[in-house]
Every structure is written in C-alpha cells, then in structure tokens.
Amino acid sequence: MAVKFLSEEWIKALMQELNESEAYREAARDWEGDFYFIVEPEGNIKEKVIYYMDLWHGECRSACVITDEKEKNPAFRISAPLSKWRRVIEKKLDPIQGMVTRQLKLQGNLMKIMKAPKAAMELVNCCTLVPTEFPE
C-alpha cells in the first residue's frame, strides 16, 4: 500500500528500507552526518515540510518530521520544491545532477558529499523502494 509523501510514515518507511539495504550499508559505511531534507512550499503545499535523518556508518539511526527548523542543527540541508523531490524519488532527476544544476540546494560540507556519491545514489535507490503517493 502506498505511503503518503510528506507524512511521518513515509520517512519511517525510508528508514526501514535504508536499514535493510546491504548496498546502502556498504556505500555509506564511512558516512557520518545528519540531514534535513526540506520540501519547500509549492502549489497546494503551503508550508515547508522538513524531514530529518540521522545517517551513521551505513545505518539510519533516526528519522522523523521536524516542525521547528531550529529544533536540530544537522550537518547538511538539501531543499527543493515538491516537484523536484518527486523527480528525484522517481529517478527522473539524478540527485547529484540536481545539485550541480542547483535544482536541489545544498548547504553543508560539500567536500564530504563529493566523497560519498555512491551513498547518495543508494539513498535515492532506497527512496524508490518506498511505494509513494504524492500530494496533488
């Protein structure tokens, strides 16, 4: 059954996929750093939605929706409107290419990201495994 994107269930489902993925575990085995994935307002989405993920050595230690952006201070923030996130999740937009063209805006230690491109790719692969229902 499809899980609604922007919901708490969706990020929990992604967390489960990540923790079950051998490919992600291997690709991100040296990764240390947490993220905000920020969905910016667009169309019927009137307020930003912030997903938080704590990624640590190939494991997702926690994942949740954040209501106050100041609640945490993650190492990385990637933000984009829903339409761009949808293209990433549906594997129509390569996330690295999305960042290079600044369709996805990245804040944080960029060098660290550049050294972990495979981890980013496997993370997206896991996103595609979550049966997702996108808001209209």
Binding site: M114, A116, P117, K118, A120
Partner: peptide
C-alpha cells in the same frame, strides 16, 4: 569515492 564513479553506466561494489 571518486566523483567519476557515480556517472558510470554500471557502478561497482
């Protein structure tokens, strides 16, 4: 960890 790996048509483990 090289940046050119992810643009390969097939990405090795």
């Amino acid at each position: 960890t090289d940046t050119q790996t992810v643009t390969s048509a097939r990405i090795p483990t």
